[in-house]
Write a protein that binds this DNA or RNA. Structure first.
Lengths: 342, 342
DNA sequence: TTTAGCACTCAAACACGTCGAGTGCTAATA
DNA sequence: TATTAGCACTCGACGTGTTTGAGTGCTAAA
């Protein structure tokens, strides 16, 4: 339905808009495309594109900005993910390629690097942790009054917490508690573990190691942390760059929301395998109506999928973002495959 | 030099100013003090106070706001720290009284609670870590390719890090490395440790456990973390409430600075034992010229002093802040005394 | 089908007028 | 001598023009 020239104009308009953030007029397009036509001709085409709903004016005599439909069309049909420069590629594989890290470190550094490369806000979520199984539990006496609890899951996450205990806890109580946990909890999913921690375990501890009940609460908190799915978010301050006139109230709500892992998971939960872009109004969250969210998934070996996302302005450089995101997706999947293979 | 009535007026003006944040006029003062005088009389007194430099106008016909000298005088001579309500006291001792926590947890939760109670931004710094001595080092093999390094200092901090290692590291190499560390580093201050980690240790590891060099870098990073003095900051978003028209650029610099532990230490480094208030211009930092910083110290048993600080608007409720801060200072000192006694 | 030309529109920037909260000053008062 | 009522004055906030410039749609000629 759109003529070739209209496509070129739409493409140019969106490219210009995403790089400057401003509405684009007919002259600007004339000076930035190979089209051999006057601004008047381009005005006619713009008018047509507007009638079709791809672009819109911010006021009656303004230049055009892409409409939601326009961005949508651009992303679905016109945009080509931009190749990532070799030096950036090198940095990415340097950072993600090192194997000395834990899962959490990898995700954290991915978020950092991604936000740095895009100058937007990066979100990295680990795979849902509910189905993890507990594979190891140990208590380690560090000194007279500190012990460390370490729990491991089959997905390779290792969580630990150090806490103080009253002197009254004996070495043998430690062993008893460890045995109770190993006997009753190892092999279970973390959901089952959480349930048993509420129901059965307190009784057992009371029975076999009566002095250890104080310790129990602390141990419980370690499990809680490991059940909580991990979220890493980086470049939050970049929001200040691309939404310059947001009032402080909104800003506060927004930042509060971004710190809440539940909200983040809600945001990207229905994400399918491939790239998904939600533009402005499409995002199911009041505070994000003026942003765009580009998400994709990565594989955590055979253990499920994690999510990588970039939050930026609706007039985001989609082509670059897609390019970078694709590199991360592949590199993360590769890194994690090796991680679990070894 | 100031008459009794002038003192009452100055006191009222500052109280009104700190609770509303606005300039205060003669009528407002008339309606909010026991002074039996007309607004005209109060105007004369205000004029006098202005001549003396305690208050100032924002423009030629505006109400008055306290000047730096006014705030200073108020804090030094007029203000009485406000008693903290019993329910708040209870919350504080509940949170800080529990002994199951580590140092870092205690500081972290103090910051959280302090920012919540004041609605400003709370900063809690641990004592300088440079003089800590290493008291314990161990390597713990968690499974085939994860080991955990744990280091302890004489100040009770315990730091750990889990990292992956290539399979090639044998149990005996682990023991060798542990021995090298224990033999050469335990008992030294963390500064000395850092130096030796650069100079001597790599050679020793190469000599006695040649396969373990890869592991070395990771271990080094654990030490780095433990040397870094701890800083905990909470309620950063509250800044958005009390500086409503700051542009996004400044806001970004400010937040970046608050995340930098070096900057924070520089800010409060010369803090003496007692309460110190720095008002606006008095703060030695460009970004904080429109804020006030109230700081005090707490004792970490015999191991040095930490700093607690509240960052708020210059028109902060100083009396409340002092009250709350004093409770924290005492409670923290008490908690940490017990912490190290047990 | 394209385009030059023109009338039109609107946001942004600036100037101007009004309102009200607040001031300083003065002359009368206690 | 200290207080105060009264009044002229100041200035920010706010609302209302005005001007400017970038951009538009429309039309008539090429």
């Amino acid at each position: 339905m759109l003529t070739k020239r209209q496509l070129i104009i739409l493409d140019a308009l969106i490219r210009l808009n995403t790089s400057t953030g401003n509405p684009i007029g007919s002259k600007t397009i004339m000076n930035n495309t190979a089209i051999k036509a006057s601004s008047a001709t381009i005005r006619n085409e713009l008018s047509e594109l507007e009638k079709e709903g791809f672009i819109q004016k911010t006021h009656s005599s303004s230049g055009r900005i892409p409409s939601l439909k326009g961005y949508r069309f651009y992303i679905d049909h016109l945009m080509r993910p931009q190749a990532v420069a070799q030096d950036k590629m090198n940095i990415i594989s340097d950072v993600l390629g090192t194997h000395v890290k834990q899962m959490d470190d990898i995700m954290h550094q991915s978020a950092q690097l991604l936000s740095e490369l895009t100058q937007y806000t990066a979100i990295v979520l680990g795979p849902r942790a509910e189905t993890s199984r507990l594979t190891g539990f140990r208590l380690l006496s560090l000194n007279d009054n500190h012990i460390m609890a370490i729990i491991q899951t089959d997905k390779g996450t290792i969580e630990n917490k150090v806490f103080r205990v009253p002197k009254t806890i004996s070495e043998s109580d430690l062993v008893k508690v460890t045995n109770i946990f190993n006997h009753h909890l190892v092999g279970q999913t973390l959901i089952e573990v959480a349930q048993k921690l509420q129901r059965d375990i307190p009784l057992l501890i009371k029975k076999y190691a009566s002095n250890a009940t104080e310790m129990f609460l602390s141990i419980e908190s370690v499990f809680k942390e490991s059940t909580e799915s991990r979220h890493h978010i980086s470049g939050k301050l970049n929001i200040l760059d691309f939404s310059e006139n947001m009032d402080t109230k909104k800003l506060k709500s927004l930042y509060t929301m971004l710190d809440n892992s539940g909200d983040l998971y809600a945001l990207v939960d229905q994400i399918s395998d491939d790239f998904v872009v939600k533009i402005g109004e499409e995002i199911d969250h009041d505070l994000l109506k003026e942003f765009s969210l580009v998400t994709t998934t990565y594989n955590v070996s055979n253990y499920g999928k994690g999510v990588i996302a970039v939050l930026g302005p609706t007039s985001m450089a989609y082509d670059e973002t897609f390019g970078v995101l694709d590199v991360f997706r592949k590199q993360l999947t590769r890194t994690l495959l090796e991680y679990y293979l070894e």
